Amino acid sequence: MITRNLRIENDKMSWEQQYAASFRNPTDLLTWLGIDIGTISDAIDTDSEFPLRVPHAFASRMLHGNPDDPLLRQVLPLKNERIPVSGFSNDPLDEENYTVGNGIIKKYQGRALLIATGACAIHCRYCFRRHYPYADESLTREQISTMISELRRMGDLDEVILSGGDPLSLSDSRLEELLDALATLPKLRRLRLHTRLPIVLPDRVTGRLATMLGQFPTEVVCVMHANHPNELDDQVAAAMHRLRVENVTLLNQSVLLNRINNDSDTIELLCKKGFEMGVLSYYLHQLDPVSGTHAFAVGDAEANEIHAELLTRLPGYLVPKLVREQAGALSKTPL
């Protein structure tokens, strides 16, 4: 398949300008891709409470004229998301009960997760936090001191995870302020960032950002989120290189998604292509049953079949762990 070159002149735009120029209207995105709305069998939701947001850098990797493009399907809001389905809820992981305030979620021993911001450069339709009350819990500049005090009281804490939204939606200066505060935690041994921005808007990995992470006083791990090999292009490879030069450990986690990556060929290529960029496969998640995401669900039998096939095709270090996250469990649950 040939991808039409739809890139904007990103070299003349900062990552912040690219972020601001993201597609926000489904009709605009489909028109830009040369797709007739009438060819899409499911009705498009132009008034979703979780509206479309897609950077041009990510949209440029979608196949022109193809309404079933696997990248497009990840972001296009459809009216069937509004259908209530048994077993799907707004907070299936029960994160509300693990939220201790000041943007902190404490679920696992030795680790605390910080909602650094509610903002993200892309709105993935399967997002497990699409209903999260960010307005109540998002970390602000005024909360940093209180948050650090709360973290100091956690005697078992040796790893902090920055999540969101997406922590790299913060400006370099805001992120630096947060990292400087975290660096004062005496027992901290690892800093982890869960981020999709280096994949969907690779220019976010500025030289300043890479240096900032490289100079952090503990080990730094960036967990990327790519679901399909078409998401990985030369710009993403360049962003990964900038991080690797600073000795940042790079991992990738994916979600198994119906009609997007639920076949062993796709996941195999994703793992190989990521490794060529210095990114090691980490988790292959079963979908979190969040309201509005039922169309992406893949059965456990099919998931196990795909994973078994990957074990025969890939060396062990390239095979992601097939897992599910369950409310109340002390760790991810292997399938």
Rank of each mutant, 00 (worst) to 15 (best):
A237R: 09
R313I: 02
L78I: 13
E231M: 06
A119V: 11
A303C: 09
E95F: 00
R174C: 09
L284W: 05
P92V: 01
E137S: 14
L197Q: 12
A135W: 02
Q286C: 10
Q143V: 00
S149W: 00
T117M: 05
D69E: 12
Y317R: 11
H123W: 04
T140H: 08
K272N: 08
L168G: 01
E231N: 08
R152K: 14
S291I: 00
V85F: 01
V223P: 13
L284I: 03
L256D: 11
L139N: 06
L151N: 12
Q326L: 14
V255C: 08
D203M: 05
S48M: 03
G207I: 04
Q286I: 00
A57S: 15
P186W: 03
Q143E: 09
I35E: 13
V160C: 08
N25S: 12
D45F: 07
D172P: 04
I260W: 03
G292E: 04
L71F: 05
F23Q: 12
S138A: 15
T39M: 11
D156S: 13
I260N: 06
P202T: 03
N262M: 10
A303N: 04
T293C: 15
L191H: 02
H123M: 02
N25V: 06
D28G: 02
N25C: 11
N66V: 01
A20W: 12
G65I: 01
P77C: 06
A301H: 14
